[in-house]
Simulated scan of single mutants.
Amino acid sequence: MDFKDYYRILGVDRGADEEDIKRAYRKLARKYHPDVSKEADAEARFKEVAEAYEVLKDPQKRAAYDEVFRRWERGESFHVPPGTDGGYEFRGEGVDLGEDFDPSEFFEAIFGRATRRRGAHFRRSGGGVRGEDHHARVLIDLEDAYRGGVHTITLRMPVLDEHGGVQMRERRLEVALPRGVREGQHLRLAGQGGPGYDGGPAGDLYLEVAFRPHPVFRVDGRDVYFDLPLAPWEAALGAQVDVPTPEGPVKLSVPAGSHGGRKLRLKGKGLPGEPAGDLYAVVSIVQPQPLNEQARQAYRALEAAFPGFDPRAALRGI
């Protein structure tokens, strides 16, 4: 995805202070508000300006964004921020953009959906004040979702130092991942949020689960997909082939006459659950190259064996 320059969107310098950012936002919000603006792209521009302000007005989100900005300036392509097992940890507060706020894919890649506003800053409990809840987005491997169990994750938490600057601090936690945990699912770690006040209990930490990109598998809900390359004769005549699954290799029967794009289902081999998802092998035909005369003769014999075959029959008459 493309990198978004929030400073350019608001028309402020990288070193702009809180008041400069607030003034720029108010000016542009008035200009592009859909209820008053006559510009054709007003709604999209208003959303973009609101998203930029949501990040730059908050010291913690701004620190996380600036780190990604520096990597982008060095010529690195944008991707989810680096970290052993996750992203950044944030408090539950933020600018209230309403229930209709729909952050962009870029915003969610850095901060996740869990950074939307989550209610009051503190809650009173007994004789003290309960600490605030924190929210973070953590990346896990797909295989971890199959196995479950206790995993060590590292979060990166922006904190203010004694001079008012923002520093990134690492925080390591032991987290029990339930077997079959889904992408987007939230895990609650009781008492791992902000500290309480006047004897009040600590807040909770909510972890939004996301999967690292996998070199083989794609996830859709509880179902998992992968591409299965087949030779033309395997697809045409059928075959028994070894295929990978997140839990180890298995044998798969390829029916005769399989075509490219056909989905072969391995029932119950998707993400564990009640019910478990399915694993789908998506057929892809790999055409061998005729690199010598013998191979070319084989292709000529194949052509002669199917004299009426028309691969473009569906295009006739279009």
Rank of each mutant, 00 (worst) to 15 (best):
F3D: 03
D5Y: 01
Y6L: 02
Y6T: 08
G11R: 03
D17M: 06
E19S: 11
D20F: 02
R23E: 09
L28C: 03
A29F: 03
K31C: 01
K31G: 00
K38A: 13
E39G: 02
D41W: 03
R45D: 00
V49H: 07
A50Q: 13
A52E: 08
Y53I: 05
A63V: 00
D66Q: 13
E67K: 12
F69G: 01
E73R: 14
G75Q: 07
F78G: 01
V80H: 07
G83Q: 06
D85E: 14
G92D: 03
D96P: 00
L97V: 00
E99T: 05
D102E: 15
P103H: 05
F106E: 00
I110W: 05
F111P: 10
G112L: 11
R118C: 03
V129Y: 07
G131I: 13
G131T: 08
D133H: 11
D133A: 09
H134C: 15
H135Q: 07
D141I: 01
R147I: 09
G149V: 07
L155Y: 05
L155K: 09
M157I: 14
G165T: 04
R169C: 01
R171P: 08
A176P: 00
A176V: 09
R182P: 04
E183W: 02
G184P: 07
H186C: 02
A190G: 01
G193Y: 09
Y197E: 10
D198H: 12
G203S: 08
D204E: 04
V209W: 06
R212S: 12
H214D: 15
F217G: 04
D220G: 04
V224C: 06
D227I: 13
L228S: 07
L230A: 06
L230R: 03
A231G: 14
P232Q: 04
W233E: 15
E234F: 10
E234H: 13
A235S: 03
E247M: 13
G257C: 05
H259F: 05
K263T: 00
L264H: 11
R265Q: 13
K267Q: 15
G270L: 14
P272L: 05
P272A: 06
A276S: 15
Y280A: 11
V283M: 08
Q287H: 12
N292W: 01
N292S: 08
A298L: 13
A301W: 00
A305W: 02
F306H: 15
F306M: 11
F306P: 00
P307C: 04
P311N: 08
R312N: 15
